[in-house]
């Protein structure tokens, strides 16, 4: 324990230097002196330029993706605060919608510009985390509004951005707006992985609904998670990330199933405010499994 704590900051500092500082300082060194008469050096100079521009682009997309992840997470947290019966729920949903729209306007547009005329699969790894989190947020919002699952074409059209590139001079309204369409391609695998994360949010929502006493919602949420799960088990090895996510999905599903079970057989015996404690007890020891061994307490 102790030696580990001492070691870690040092390692990290070193690693960081090599990644960032090292790269850029070396870049400056080499721009000056190369032997022009040596053909090998001349070609490597070109490789340097090519590699640097590729890495820079990659880095820029990674940065944007990180921002998108953070903002999407915030939108999801916000959505969790919208209670079903709460009159304020609508305004919260609207606020989250605004947040997501803001992400599109400020971040996705830049990503789309970077990806224009590129093979997106070359840079997919750079923006995949942000994309998955964003898909999770958008589909969660969509689910709360419509109680249905947002499809891939819908998702794709959400990420087809219309950018108004009209030059905003002081003379208004007369200028014909120049609107260009940018797309952030959504590969189906990424969509699936986003949906897998969505089930985690649905599970959280279900458990929260137990605590607020809106028990119907818990039962309503069971089927969506189940049907997503059932569809997912049919997919083969399509992505390296999928097995892990499928595992989490399964656990989420079992948690909700266990909650429904408990509510069904014992819901009437307990006052509403105690149900959460009851559920927590069930999940504390069983590791999410349906093994209820506290029957004796009754």
């Amino acid at each position: 324990m102790e030696w580990y704590q001492y070691l870690r900051p040092d390692c990290r500092r070193d690693g960081g230097k090599r990644w960032r500082g090292g790269g850029s300082s070396r870049k400056q060194d080499t721009t000056t002196e190369i032997d022009e008469s040596n053909p090998i050096m001349v070609s490597f100079k070109q490789f340097q330029i090519k590699l640097d521009s590729k890495h820079d682009k990659h880095e820029r997309i990674v940065k944007l993706s990180r921002d998108i992840t953070i903002e999407s997470k915030r939108a999801i947290f916000l959505l969790h605060r919208a209670n079903q019966d709460d009159p304020k729920a609508c305004s919260i949903i609207e606020e989250a919608e605004g947040k997501l729209h803001e992400i599109k306007k400020t971040k996705w547009v830049d990503v789309a510009k970077e990806l224009m005329h590129e093979d997106i699969y070359q840079f997919l790894r750079a923006y995949s985390p942000g994309l998955q989190e964003y898909i999770e947020a958008v589909t969660f919002l969509y689910f709360m509004k419509t109680k249905t699952l947002m499809s891939l074409p819908q998702m794709q059209s959400d990420l087809t951005l219309k950018v108004d590139e009209t030059e905003n001079s002081t003379e208004d309204s007369e200028i014909t707006p120049v609107i260009t369409e940018l797309t952030v391609p959504v590969p189906p695998v990424e969509y699936l992985l986003g949906i897998a994360d969505l089930t985690g949010e649905l599970m959280r929502m279900a458990i929260r609904c137990v605590s607020t006493g809106s028990l119907d919602v818990v039962f309503d949420l069971l089927n969506p998670i189940k049907s997503i799960h059932d569809s997912f088990v049919q997919f083969g090895p399509i992505s390296r990330e999928l097995p892990r996510k499928l595992n989490v999905l399964r656990q989420s599903l079992m948690k909700v199933e266990a909650a429904c079970y408990t509510l069904k057989i014992r819901g009437s015996e307990f006052p509403k405010h105690m149900l959460v404690n009851l559920l927590n007890e069930d999940h504390g020891g069983g590791g999410g499994g349906p093994g209820f061994d506290d029957e004796g307490i009754e």
């Binding site: 109680k147 699952l149 969506p224």
Partner: peptide, 9 residues
């Protein structure tokens, strides 16, 4: 639930 159909599609 509507999601069932939408999910399968």
């Amino acid at each position: 639930m509507a999601l069932n159909e939408s999910a399968t599609n």
